[in-house]
Design a protein around this nucleic acid. Sequence first.
RNA 1: GGGCGAUUAGCUCAGUUGGUUAGAGCACUAGCUCGACAAGCUAGGGGUCACUGGUUCGAGUCCAGUAUCGCCCACCA
Length: 1095
Amino acid sequence: MQDENATELPKQYDPGIIEGPITERWLGSKCFAAAPDERENSYVIMMPLPNVTGALHMGHAMDNVMQDLLIRWHRMMGDNTLWMAGTDHAGIATQAVVEKRLFELEGKTRHDIGREDLVKRIWAWKDEYQQRIVSQQQAMGCSCDWDRQRFTMDEVCERAVRHTFFKMFRDGLIYQGDRLVNWDCHLQTAVSDDELERKLVHGHFYHLRYPVIDPKPGEPSHIIVATTRPETMLGDTAVACRANPGAVLDELIAQAEQKVTEASDKDRADDQQALDSLKARKDSHLDVLNTIAAMAADGRQVMLPLQDRPIPIITDEWAKPELGSGCVKITPAHDPNDYEVWGRHKNDIDIVNILNNDGSLNDNAGDYQGLDRFEASKQIISALQERDLVEGIEDRDLEIDHSDRSKTIIEPYLSKQWFVRMSDIPDGVTLGSGTEREFKAPGLAQAAIDAVNPEWESPTGRNLTFHPDPVRYGKLYKNWLVEKRDWCISRQLWWGHRIPVWTGRWSGQQLLSMKMLISAHKDRDDVFVWVVLPNEQRMPAADALAAFESGELKADQVEIQVCFRDKDGEEAITPMLSSVGLKADPDVLDTWFSSALWPHATLGWPDPATAPIGEGQTHLDATDGASSCLDYFYPGSCLVTARDIITLWVARMQIMGLYNLGDVPFTDSFIHANIQDGKGNKMSKSAGNGIDPVDIIEQYGADAMRYVVCELQTGTQDVRLPVHAVSPFTGKTVDLAKAKHGDSIFTYLCPESGKEFDVLGTMQDHGIPAAKLFSERFEIGRAFCNKLWNSARFALMNLGEAEFRPLAADELAIEDRWILSRLNGAMRVVHEQLELYTPSAAINAAREFFWSDFCDWYVEIIKPRLRDSDQTAVARQVLAAVLDQILRLFHPFVPFITEAIWEKLNAQAPKRGIDTELPMSAMVINARWPIARDDWQDAAVETEFEMAQEVVKNIRDLRQSHGASPGKEVDVEITTNAATRTVLEPLGGLIAGMANASSIKFDAAAKPTNAATAVVKGMEIHVLGVVDVEKEIAKLEKQAAKIDGQIKGKRGKLENQGFLDKAPGAVVQKEQQALAQLEGELTSVQNTLSELRSN
RNA sequence: GGGCGAUUAGCUCAGUUGGUUAGAGCACUAGCUCGACAAGCUAGGGGUCACUGGUUCGAGUCCAGUAUCGCCCACCA
């Protein structure tokens, strides 16, 4: 019986020796590759680009596994499936990492080695990590089309970036302006709000006195203002108070009174205190605030100390009479709120920038020029103290913005930046210009908002839906977009896409050459020139030229901005541009600008035929009658990512896709869980709680890792993955949720040895060894794989030469019909749950079928048939067919092990099926996805089988609780009604086999003597010869008590008139039936009890 | 301060439109080397569904409030 083939399978599943060769087979047979063909259904996933800053952790693994799951599922369903892989240059992050290394290893800054050399080094770094990331993804089994990999700075993407920038520039959607940005003084770049990190810092709150110029009688001699950053006072250009402080305070007092009356008991005291202090403030401050307001109206000034510069007192709503002195200093160039104040008072007050790029003070800082801002702060305070201009200093913990990348304090800083206009604009924005999908939208942000509205009618009829909770995530997406804040796209970095614009201010002498330049380019479609007027208004070149001719416009009033679409075009006239005094913009674009183009840039937009792809890569143009990749694969299908990426990236991809192509880049977005550690903190490499998926794969196997990751993805809930470390001292596991930290938050103490180890892998230089991180959760996955392996091993040992011939229904045993019915149910649920984006429910349904139904029952039941030559053929055929379907069903979740078993199964049973032959393929990756067979569904058989299972379980329980050893055969008698007997009698052999009974008798007579008895579902099951009277009585008494409780509950319900009147008839009826059955059971139990007691 | 979400067994999580006295896996207890699998099999114990009210004949499920935790946004003279 034993087959030679099967003996090759070892007893335990060893992923280490399976996974490598399987990966080779997949790659070798090009089954991940996608190309446009005649199929109507394509399925496209654009991989969220990992940064090339470092290796991946379990959060990325979740993202990648979810994508591979969807991709493999769709590939098996016959879709033309493309998974586009690649990496992001991640501007700031990558440059920061490389600069840090440069400094640590060589003691040099980027300025020492220059732009060209730094960029070269970053490319080298990128090559190293890109390779590492791809190897991690391949280890996980990601079935990406590796021959199409892109990098956001490769030539294909660069061309798309330039085309998009040019288009936006020409359309007036990109503009340059002086804006207050978050400035990273260390990296010397602007960073976006999203790249800020708030930290609590111990600091001081300084109250300063600014002398009033020529105070009149009754007026204060000083106005008190407060700041946490004293150095900014050098850039103050006004002091503000409220125009009507009394009205504001009265309003606040009224609100506070309201709050006190509505307060809960707990809050009342606090609210009352707040009210009291407001009232006290009105008494103490109102008079002087009114005086200052009057002074403001009178155009009075204060003298800015140290600078000896008069600055006006103004009134503005930003001043809060309830806080501080009620007056506030205005530093427009260094505070976002003050900047807004300046916006409201542009004609009255100045804006003075006092900082250099590196955080030192510039020539506007008077005596303090050249000092670092922190040093200047100290000196300014002591100078003010000498002049008796410090009213007081408070200690205070301050929440201060830090750069996420350099970890240094962010300064609000006035600088020239490029922006994309997100707001609505008067004539609207043309989306997809030049395509057949061209249409108008009010603005870029609005277009992306519309796209998520289910009723939105786009030219293509497509829109965007989030999963698994469209409402919740749709709201998140919209709430961010409705702000329509302009997007700052310039970064003062060296690593990234250079902004393709030349700018210059023109003197009168160069008017002629400017005119020539403009004339030469005004009719070209690859160059666009804006002439910027002093009021920030702009004119296209042609209009400006006319204005120059008529003398309306003078050359020295304007700035010129020239944007080149093509790199070649720009390089061709570089010398000319320089010679007339234009300068290339030194900045690069925000990383998200290029990643927002990912879904169409990777497919060759704007022209797939001429896309500059790399050597050995798959072409993108249309050939052999097939469409181009862009036409065929755009728009894509599903974007798989985590919640926090919805705003950063999903929204921006929508904007860019709609703008460039007039269609959404993908129709669905699957938002998966974030992985947290055992304490509920988000997993990340930089937090020291990140597990490398490769560590898990080495220990448990890729499929085990994937199995658990799929199981974790239950819905919208983030998941905890308790993280353990392997102590490098003892080799034992340490639970990081409980372990104590060492000297740094990245080190922990080994509880046994007390020695310190590191979890980031960055402390080796300090003599602190690193620990590998893992999680015991993955044991489950390993156990599953081992079970699958061994069930296959059993099947292969017993299949012999399984052959296929169409089987008629009456040739099948009841257990065959049962397992097929259950299989149909599992196929249906798995498919449905995948459609609902709930992989956990899908894999659990598959597991339940495989482990409980197939292994625990079906395989055990057919063992005798497999040994009986008369019955073996049908059993083998069903076994092979069901195993086939199991492998297909599990393949998207656990691809390696299913592929390995599939090969063996193909060798031994090349033709498989029940009534018809299943479609075959050499590898399961290309096999057809199992489609539910509703004709296999058999509710009657499932019910009958369930009864048999109930009997078996009860017999086993009775045996065990009465101490009958598992090997001992017992006799069983079952007392029941005729209907149940009719069902169970034919299943007697099956029941006997599963319960190890020597005989099953159906006898309507009373309880046999000397038997242990279970009362269940209208049956009395007696196991003869094993009775232990005391145990029996105790057990039955417990059961009686439980039934009695249930009966009381039911009676209470049924005696409740309200229930009878109002509950639906079906519910009442169900309760009545349940009560009747319970009462019957109770009688049986009590009868059995009294018989036992009387003996 | 605003918004979103969560709180169910020791742990990690399910629980469909409200309808038996609430489920799974891991861990735990007891028994088991029987011809696939001890990474296994069989059986078992374990929960006042965070708390307080409300709606309802009936609440883990709906509503309000409280507490705790997480995430996002804003503000901080």
